[in-house]
Nucleic acid binder design. Structure first.
Length: 689
RNA sequence: GGCGAGGUAGCUCAGCUGGUUAGAGCGCAGGAUUCAUAAUCCUGAGGUCGAGAGUUCAAGUCUCUCUCUCGCUACCA
């Protein structure tokens, strides 16, 4: 993109509406987009930024069931909560939409039908069980019946757990739906697949050379290495067909006769939400949405986290191109992940800094969090947020360098020139000239960095101007010069005021609130980016009030925040774990044969990361058990241990090895495993009951 | 197991197409200074650029092997 685009459409990943927003989300896809868009707006470019809640998918229905409520209630709650979190951090979308809206359903269906007409999908028609009561087709796992081989009456549609034989649903005797218990009927159904292998050739050119339809589309070197790298590895590895519909009752219904109980796959549904959002933005603002998605001189940029790369760079582009008429992304500046206090961010372990809680605890201090996240943004590798680092950046950089600089300038001007911008003589010393050059070049440096998605670098440039201002004041010592030379003092402070005004402009994308406060203190409300680099505060302009820009973060505040991490203490030991399974019977329990066993040998299964092949002694035989614990235990750690064995589990071939039983493990909150070990004195072969 | 991205000063990170003594911020040590939110400024110490081998007149920067971290994926739940 050397030529300036006529307009830019920016999207941020649609956050999934089943949990609150934390700083990892913010630093990944929202703050960078916000910085980029604020900058473009300041440059008076035509830019629209859309986002919205992703409200479909199985995870939401499961959560609703667990909480005893409806999917609608879940998404309504999080839709509201997420908007609050974003606005608390001044993440200012032009439009924030949601995928459960009527407009989106209508548009997504229309889009799907056009793709269908154009033959973008391959159709596979087959007989599948249908639950008339639940009005949906049943995945193999949702059907239970009697195994034709061993007559066990709890065989699933894909496999009998008792004898281990692989089954297909129609082999089952007396099949039942596990959803309703009713007898399913066979119906003809169509599945739609996206055959991605058809698209390998143009994708390769698009990703590697930035060429699309024979034209230069974007500069591939401007893409981040990890984005291009991951995409190329997918395409080179050969693309597979991917199902574009799911059997679910919560989502965009497939708009085809006889497709009851089928919805569009979320990865078809969600990115189309970008387009819906743009349409709704246009409707709201009396604008035309089409140029933003269809005109060749529009630039399309997707901000996402690294886990979404393939969908935005491969699958969505395929859909857009197949449909025709739509633009493909010109850049996808995906960020890596943000870690927290030495560990991964985890919603379930409450190892996160929640955007909403931050604003509750630090009201009005969104700029501080924006600043810190921008300075440590995971642009090319994973980054780490710690509260100590937060404190040190806020105190040393924002309060001491920026806040104090502005304060010095305003106080000196008030003291010596009655609070009005003094008149400069017009002759500058070489020191002055050097500083004026930096002032002139800083907006360009900041802007270039932002346009290349180098936000930390941009912030460094902006803060560099402030640092230079501090140095200038210290070296020129206006408080001494004033005693002998009022005009020279006026020159110094005049320049310092221009530096302050320029800093307010280049920092505005990062620190919108602070920038406004500085403008007010300089007696103006209008500091346009296009005037940056030169003199912005006219002679004689009366200065306004300057509040303390940044309070220091205290050690106590840091401690409070750190103490909040991890399992919630107020819950008094109650954990947020999976709901209990529905009741079972004593008879059912009796079918399981649990025994104490001793591991006598262990080795890694070749070609598998997670599997250990164990030889266990039961007291009456020795057998092989394959266990998925290799990531947590080395073979030498488990030999000699007494374990709990589910002895009568149907044998099953795993990675070429027949496993005769299962070793019971406790799964801890952090995802690691512990053996269920009998107390001292229990011997191999002891029966557990 | 396959693939991708990383591993650079105590900490957080920059280092584009290979080129003289490897950089920034913080922290640390010493000094200057007082207009200012005990703030600011200067100077300094500090790195065998994950390990090993290779290509080259020259490698943090290219090639190969190994190792660790993160992600995708497979096998697995």
């Amino acid at each position: 993109m050397t030529a300036k685009p006529a307009r830019t459409l920016v999207t941020s990943a649609l956050p999934y509406a089943n949990g609150p927003i934390h700083i990892g989300h913010i630093a990944g896809a929202y703050l960078p987009a916000d910085l980029y868009v604020r900058y473009l707006r300041a440059r008076k470019r035509d830019v629209v930024w859309v986002c919205g809640s992703d409200e479909h998918g199985a995870a939401i229905t499961l959560r609703a069931r667990k909480e005893g409520t409806t999917p609608r209630a879940i998404v309504d709650r999080y839709h509201a909560e997420m908007q609050e979190a974003f606005s608390g951090l001044d993440i200012a979308f032009d439009h924030y939409d949601r995928t459960s809206s009527e407009e989106h359903h209508g548009f997504a269906q229309e889009f799907f039908l056009e793709l269908l007409e154009k033959g973008a999908f391959t159709e596979e028609t087959r007989q599948q069980f249908y639950d008339p009561q639940e009005k949906q087709f049943l995945a193999d796992r949702y059907i239970q019946g009697t195994c034709p081989k061993c007559q066990d009456d709890r065989a699933y549609g894909d496999q009998c757990e008792k004898c281990g034989s692989a089954l297909s649903p129609d082999e089952l005797i007396d099949p039942k739906s596990t959803l309703s218990g009713s007898t399913p009927e066979m119906r003809e159904t169509t599945l739609w697949y996206l055959p991605m292998d058809r698209h390998e050739s143009w994708l390769k050119t698009y990703l590697e050379d930035g060429v699309l339809d024979g034209e230069q589309h974007h500069d591939p070197k401007s893409w981040k290495a990890h984005v291009t790298g991951q995409c190329k590895s997918w395409v080179d590895g050969g693309l597979q067909s991917r199902a574009m519909t799911r059997d679910l009752d919560w989502g965009v219904p497939v708009p085809v006769e006889g497709a009851d109980g089928k919805v569009l796959y979320v990865w078809l549904d969600a990115p189309l939400g970008y387009i819906t959002a743009t349409r709704n933005w246009a409707k709201k603002n009396g604008a035309d949405w089409a140029p933003y998605w269809k005109d060749k001189d529009t630039q399309l940029v997707h901000f996402i986290g690294k886990d979404n790369i393939v969908f935005h760079c491969i699958i969505f582009p395929i859909l857009l191109k197949e449909h025709g008429g739509y633009l493909l992304p010109h850049n996808v500046p995906a960020n890596e992940f943000m870690n927290l206090e030495g560990d991964k961010i985890s919603t379930s372990r409450n190892w996160a800094v929640w955007a909403k809680e931050y604003i509750d605890d630090f009201p009005g201090r969104s700029d501080e969090m924006r600043y810190v996240l921008a300075s440590i943004m995971p642009e090319q590798k994973d980054a780490e947020f710690t509260w100590e680092d937060f404190q040190s950046r806020v105190n040393n950089e924002l309060a001491d360098v920026l806040g104090n600089f502005v304060n010095r300038v305003v106080v000196l001007t008030s003291k010596y020139f009655d609070g009005k911008a003094p008149a400069a003589s017009g002759t500058w010393t070489s020191t002055d000239e050097a500083l004026r050059e930096l002032m002139a070049s800083t907006p360009g440096a900041v802007g270039d960095a932002i346009e290349r998605y180098r936000f930390r670098d941009a912030l460094q440039h902006a803060m560099g101007l402030v640092r230079a201002g501090n140095k200038y004041l210290t070296e020129e010592e206006p408080w001494k010069v004033m005693k002998t030379d009022a005009q020279r003092t006026a020159d110094i402070l005049s320049l310092a005021l221009q530096i302050t005004a320029n800093a307010a402009i280049v920092l505005a994308p990062f620190l919108p609130r602070t920038s406004e406060k500085i403008a007010t203190a300089l007696g103006t409300s209008d500091l346009p980016w296009d005037a940056a680099g030169g003199d912005l505060v006219p002679t004689g302009q009366p200065l306004g009030a300057l509040p303390i820009l940044f309070e220091k973060v205290t050690d106590e505040q840091v401690e409070v925040q750190r103490a909040k991490l991890g399992p919630d203490a107020s819950q008094e030991g109650l954990r947020d774990v999976e709901a209990e399974k529905p009741g079972t019977s004593f008879d059912d329990f009796q079918t399981m044969d649990l025994r104490v066993a001793e591991v006598v040998a262990a080795e890694k299964v070749k070609g598998a990361d997670k599997l250990l092949q164990l030889t266990v002694r039961t007291g009456y035989d020795e057998r092989t058990v394959v266990s998925g614990i290799a990531e947590h235990f080395k073979p030498e750690d488990v030999v000699g241990r007494k374990v709990t064995l589910l002895a009568n589990l149907a044998p099953r071939k795993i990675r070429g090895v027949v496993s005769q039983g299962m070793v019971l493990m406790a799964s801890t909150e952090d995802g690691s495993l512990r053996f269920v070990t009998p107390d001292e004195g229990a011997e191999a072969g002891d029966i557990i009951r």
